[in-house]
């Protein structure tokens, strides 16, 4: 019989191979669980219905940002963030992670492989948004590359949130409560109009608001004031929300690294 890789294979390739095959197993498990799959897609896609309500249809940018933004943040929060959190915590409890860590897999490969199924669903939801938005009378994304990079960055941010939450979550049941702060952080950004004017610049620093802002800039080429941007200007306008997401990611990774456990508490 042959082995899949020669022992001399370069470590980097071996790492990628391990990550992808573990990720594939995690995907198999996700697909096998129909309820998870249904929720993973149905929940985030539901807000897109807003695009077809009579009053708001007809390509209104604010309505578009609201509907698609909610969809993206829902996808990042549930199939992305919450799914990784609960997978990590459950497998830690069941000693699956401890077992895998006795083998050749590196910790970061293990983490990435667990984030992959959620990441795939967020990307799929983002892609589905495009034809639905078109049908709802909106235009195609004006800077699709920036949009894609923004979605990828947000996936990383929310995955980092999941690890940070896992660091202080005792077990799978506790995750229902410990996920609260992040869900709040994700959705507070939408309630901008509900806050007094002088709080706005602080709300804009929340991850959910940054995702919304990136969406507005990359898809509709509009800044937060509603002014139109050229293709080149969209890159500049994306700087602040990108920095906000990078900062949140760095903070979450830093905190997670300090206290993430791989075994259940004794």
């Amino acid at each position: 019989m042959t082995t899949t890789t020669a022992p001399a294979a370069r470590p980097r390739h071996a790492g990628l191979r391990r990550t992808l095959s573990l990720g594939r197993s995690n995907w198999t498990l996700m697909v096998r669980n129909r309820t998870t799959m249904l929720y993973a897609f149905a929940l985030p896609l539901f807000p897109l219905v807003l695009l077809f309500t009579a009053e708001r249809s007809g390509g209104d940018v604010n309505a578009g940002v609201a509907a698609i933004g909610t969809t993206l943040v829902m996808a990042l929060t549930f199939p992305g963030y919450y799914n990784l959190l609960s997978m990590f915590v459950t497998r830690r409890d069941e000693l699956v992670l401890k077992r895998l860590r006795t083998g050749e897999v590196r910790d970061r490969e293990l983490l990435v492989s667990m984030a992959l199924p959620g990441a795939a669903i967020v990307l799929a939801v983002a892609v589905i948004c495009v034809p639905v938005a078109l049908a709802g009378g909106l235009e195609l994304p004006l800077n699709p590359l920036l949009l894609l990079l923004g979605v990828l960055l947000s996936i990383v941010t929310f995955a980092a949130f999941a690890l940070w939450t896992a660091a202080w979550t005792r077990n799978a049941e506790a995750a229902q409560l410990t996920s609260g702060p992040i869900i709040l952080l994700a959705f507070l950004g939408f309630m901008l109009p509900a806050f007094p004017e002088d709080l706005h610049r602080w709300i804009e620093l929340l991850p959910g608001a940054a995702v919304n802002e990136l969406l507005r800039v990359a898809w509709f080429a509009q800044d937060s004031g509603g002014a139109s941007l050229s293709f080149l200007q969209t890159w500049g306008a994306a700087t602040q929300p990108v920095l906000v997401l990078v900062a949140w990611t760095a903070l979450a990774v830093l905190l997670a690294r300090r206290s993430l456990r791989w075994e259940p508490r004794a």
Binding site: R17, L29, R91, L95, V96, K98, R99, T102, G103, E104
Partner: peptide
Amino acid sequence: SGFVGDLTVRETLRMWAATVT
């Protein structure tokens, strides 16, 4: 130690094999 309950024995071993040089 634990294994994921929803994978079969063969799938579990195949997954493990994929992590071994």
